[in-house]
């Protein structure tokens, strides 16, 4: 264990100056968390708690007031092709066709490649998200919302970043489209083993996709309160996952956090003086007998390695 994480967020604090010169707005304070290589991490929190703000810092598009983001043992200072971003909206350049948008990314990432190789690579990734011949020549305004996000995801995967940052990529989509694209995302992700950090509002989406879910308390002074491990084996299917015995314990834990504890947890922290801490790792999906079931039942094998986590004191869980 104890190998260096791919990404490490240390005591990150962001404050916005208040417009009237009064107290600055502290969005979050002393956020700490790590992301391991190959992990799929989701972050959930109420609207306005500062998820996009954190993501912009991770992307290097904004600088935090204090604290550091360390990736591959180097501090993040500005945007880089190592971190691909899919924004909440407007990720695509509207004057370019879907194909050109992907080519835009590929050309930036692999400037030495020749025209044909860039094109093939772009087509390959459009195919991967189910956008084949016929739609690639259309402009974003001629595509549906779902297709647009598919193109954004194709471009993000095509540049093969070390870390993929997704800011509510399916936020604007209807439930059906959302489901199909989630499946596609899982498929592409399991093929590439990409490390992903994704913001979402949707508890079920997070459980379906993530290895681990970070829970963010309400702002101002938001913190990363908990890190919830999703102990549900992969491959996961949307239809089957709800029958898994860990599903409802996990879901209830998340919902309970969002409905009640997200408001109070920051105040509790203040009272107990417990600042600068790492999020507490919880595994609501582990029911004592399950450890036995897992070994005995070959169909419940994990298909990916789930990294192990430790608490602040270094003790393994």
């Amino acid at each position: 264990m104890n190998k260096k994480p791919l990404l490490s967020i240390q005591n990150l604090t962001t404050r916005y100056p208040s417009p009237d010169g009064g107290e600055p707005l502290t969005v979050f304070e002393n956020a700490n968390f790590d992301i391991e290589e190959g992990e799929f991490v989701c972050i959930i929190g109420h609207s306005g708690c500062g998820k996009s703000t954190i993501m912009n810092v991770l992307a290097g598009l904004a600088t935090a007031t204090s604290g550091a983001v360390i990736m591959d043992e180097k501090e993040v200072r500005g945007p880089s092709l190592d971190r691909g971003v899919v924004f909440q909206n407007y990720s695509l350049l509207p004057w370019m066709s879907a194909l050109s948008n992907v080519i835009f990314g590929v050309r930036a990432r692999f400037p030495k490649w020749n025209r044909k190789r860039i094109r093939d690579h772009a087509y390959k990734h459009l195919d991967m998200v189910g956008l084949g011949k016929g739609t690639e020549k259309r402009k974003p305004s001629q595509l549906s919302g779902g297709m647009r996000q598919r193109v954004s995801i194709a471009r993000a995967f095509a540049i093969q970043p070390k870390l993929l940052l997704l800011d509510e990529p399916f936020g604007a989509l209807d439930a059906l489209t959302r489901g199909t694209i989630q499946d596609e995302l899982i498929r592409v992700w399991s093929k590439t083993g990409q490390t992903v950090f994704m913001i979402t509002h949707d508890v079920d989406e997070a459980i379906l996709l993530a290895d681990r879910i970070l829970l963010m308390s309400n702002g101002p002074y938001a913190t990363i309160a908990e890190s919830v491990v999703i102990d549900i084996p992969r491959p996961r299917k949307r239809a089957d996952i709800i029958h898994h015995e860990a599903y409802y314990p996990i879901r209830n834990h998340l919902v309970e956090f969002l409905t009640t504890r997200s408001e109070t947890v920051a105040a509790e922290d203040k009272r107990s003086g417990e600042l600068n801490r790492h999020p507490k790792t919880v595994r609501p999906g582990i029911i004592p007998k399950q450890a036995v079931t897992e070994q005995d039942n070959p169909t419940l094998q994990f298909t990916r390695d789930i990294p192990t986590y430790s608490l602040d004191n270094g003790a393994p869980i």
């Binding site: 945007p79 092709l81 350049l93």
Partner: peptide, 8 residues
């Protein structure tokens, strides 16, 4: 920002 994240 799209341009920036692509290091143009």
């Amino acid at each position: 920002n799209v341009a920036r994240t692509h290091e143009l």
